[in-house]
Amino acid sequence: MTVNRGIVAQIAVLAALAVIPLVVHNDYYLHLLILALMWVVIGSAWNLLAGYTGQVSFGDAAFFGTGAYTAGLLVIHWGWSAWWGLFFGGIMAVVIAFPFGWICFRLRGAYFALATLALNEVLRHVATIWESFTQGMVGIMIMQSYISKLPYYYIALALAALSIIIIRLVMRSRLGYYFLSIREDQDAAESLGVNTHFYKMLSLVIAAWLTGVAGALYMNYMGFIDPHVVFSLHDISIMAILVGIVGGVGTTYGPAVGAFIMVLVQEMFRTAGFGYIKAAAKFTDVQFLISASEQLTKGHALGFGILVVLVIRYMPNGVVGDWGKLMIALRLQKTGRAK
């Protein structure tokens, strides 16, 4: 019964997301939603590797950037459509991930995390220095194939749904148990005869593939990449972790929730409530609101940073993981005492 209800809820959410563009005609909001859906893919992929398999990656941008550059390079070198990147981008990300995992999975914990970080940095430098092939810091610019946002929106939605379905399928299968056993205690898993190296590789390959596809989508949609954008440690790799942690590590829907929170909140801070606070200030002519909106835009990154600190401090399992705690804190549920 509960399973049925779960499925109904999922279909309802998916249907709601599918209808949004038909109702919301504001392309700016669709733009934000497309970005959020892209982050659902990246966050879910990170979560599979880190949240379920326990191998924390600090270098997701390596796969993201590879996917994006695959799509871009197909265009400028061979004149193919960047949409081929959706196919080849994922494959190229796996091509990078495979040898990397093969060599580096002997490292554990923080050491593995640092190795992924180094991979991220190395690829960024390669993309910067190898000017004859990648155009270096000049970047790659392509024109979007559609002016309307709708195709991008539905492709992003399909990818986001696909990534969640893949993760659900994986985690419900035997694989899922192996992944979890590695996260909980790698040595115990090994002594029970689990080929940990193989399963870690499998987890990494799936994660890298999804991230690479998201990267290709980014190239198609944004139309401009340079090494500092797509191989960014701060804006991609760390953001991927934040999406996972804020949403909830090791939960199916955590990264999805995290992605929406992070993208929308970041933009809300940047534009002082999508420009509404400013509009409200102009409209009501309340001096306090005017200066508040000015200070908010000026300190948008500060506000965002404080939010991150607060979430990690008070909801270490993320919004989904600490949902009960959040409800209690907001007094929306009567059980227990507010913190």
Binding site: A113, R183, L242, K298
Partner: peptide, 30 residues
């Protein structure tokens, strides 16, 4: 305080340092 919280990954602390870094940078910019 994060040490005491029950979480799946120990990396929460690392993430906290990222947040702290962002806040410090932005305070100085402010």
């Amino acid at each position: 305080p994060l040490l005491r919280a029950e979480t799946i990954l120990p990396e929460n602390q690392v993430l906290m340092t990222v947040g702290v870094g962002m806040v410090l940078t932005e305070i100085m910019r402010f």
